[in-house]
Design a protein around this nucleic acid. Structure first.
Lengths: 187, 187
DNA sequence: TTTCAAACTTATTTACTAGTAAGTACGTTA
DNA sequence: TAACGTACTTACTAGTAAATAAGTTTGAAA
């Protein structure tokens, strides 16, 4: 039997990435899972507690991906490509990323939820910085600026690239070309 | 006397850029302008008609800026800097741009509103492409890739850069550094 | 076999949402 | 001065939001 709490997080995450935090309701989740509205409140008393759980789950998922890639001794390029593939997968589901979706709604979130959005961002950025700095040492990458800024450019293109691609008819091609340009510019 | 219709657009635009499309109501506008809810419905029968008017207003504002910059014979660098300054101004008001805000809510907008978001994007991108191509001819810019992709990279960094800056304590510095990197990379 | 807690459901509350119907004040025009 | 349109207001509707209280089922432990 699938865990209801896990299922709620799964469905709610999809709704946030598709419609945004302020456009989905407990009723939307209840309808999909064939449970009552109050059942969701049993697991997540408030919408804030739900979005906090969702963001912690996102962070956990990312940490697991990083761990897996490292255990498989994936190269710097392969690790960045894995991040790109994550976004390509989202776009195929007509979704944007959590950072873009909750980032644009940040002013309507409770402080404890805002912190988790920021934590998720830090996680991605630190991972990317590590990859970039390691790649610079091994000679795979060459760039003269700070790795922080270089990482920012890549993340910015992921976050906004998927938003733009979605309102341009889910255009994967421009998104891919843009990300490839960024990658070739530093190799 | 200030025109109520114009004031509604002004206040509603601010609310969208600060909180997002699904987080503001006619009541919020009414409260600011000290008018009744129904007065807004008189000028804008539906929320869709309001957001369409807002986006057309954004497009008009941008067209006027472009016209002004060209009439003053501003250089390619100065024109791009004017676009950057627009974003710096938004960030100072704790706001993100219309493309980021409405782009992440696109799936919850009526088709006629979605089209206007896309139109606004096209306007910015075409302007940037023109600047980049002109700059390449005059020798101010040097880049080997397609101007379309180069323009995409700049826009993506504006859209996402301001979103990220806002949830990172309205950090102007990283945003400025990132945009400066992009500019120096092609000059 | 009783007890109890986990995981729900039913039913309800309070507050807010977009939208509408009907009436009014007011300046302009015929 | 009568008529009319613009720009509102008051009052309301139907629907939805998050959240809660109270009751029910169920399986496992004492």
């Amino acid at each position: 039997m699938t865990d209801t709490k896990t299922e709620i997080i799964r469905v709610a995450t999809g709704l946030i990435l598709e419609k945004g935090y302020n456009a989905f309701s407990y009723a939307d989740i209840a309808k999909v899972l064939h449970i009552r509205n109050a059942a969701i409140h049993y697991h997540f008393p408030t919408k804030t507690s739900l979005v906090v759980a969702i963001m912690k789950n996102q962070q956990e998922g990312l940490k697991n991906l990083i761990k897996e890639l490292k255990s498989k001794n994936k190269s710097e390029i392969e690790q960045i490509q894995a991040l790109f593939d994550l976004y390509i997968g989202l776009l195929a589901q007509k979704q944007i990323c959590a950072l873009g979706s909750l980032g644009s709604d940040i002013q309507t979130l409770a402080p404890e939820a805002q912190i988790e959005v920021k934590n998720d961002y830090e996680l991605v950025r630190n991972w990317l910085m590590e990859i970039l700095e390691m790649g610079k040492i091994t000679g795979v990458f060459k760039f003269q600026c700070d790795a922080t800024i270089q990482a920012s450019v890549i993340i910015n293109n992921l976050i906004a690239g998927i938003i733009v691609a979605r309102f341009n008819g889910f255009d994967k091609e421009t998104f891919k070309h843009t990300m490839n340009l960024l990658l070739t510019e530093i190799t």
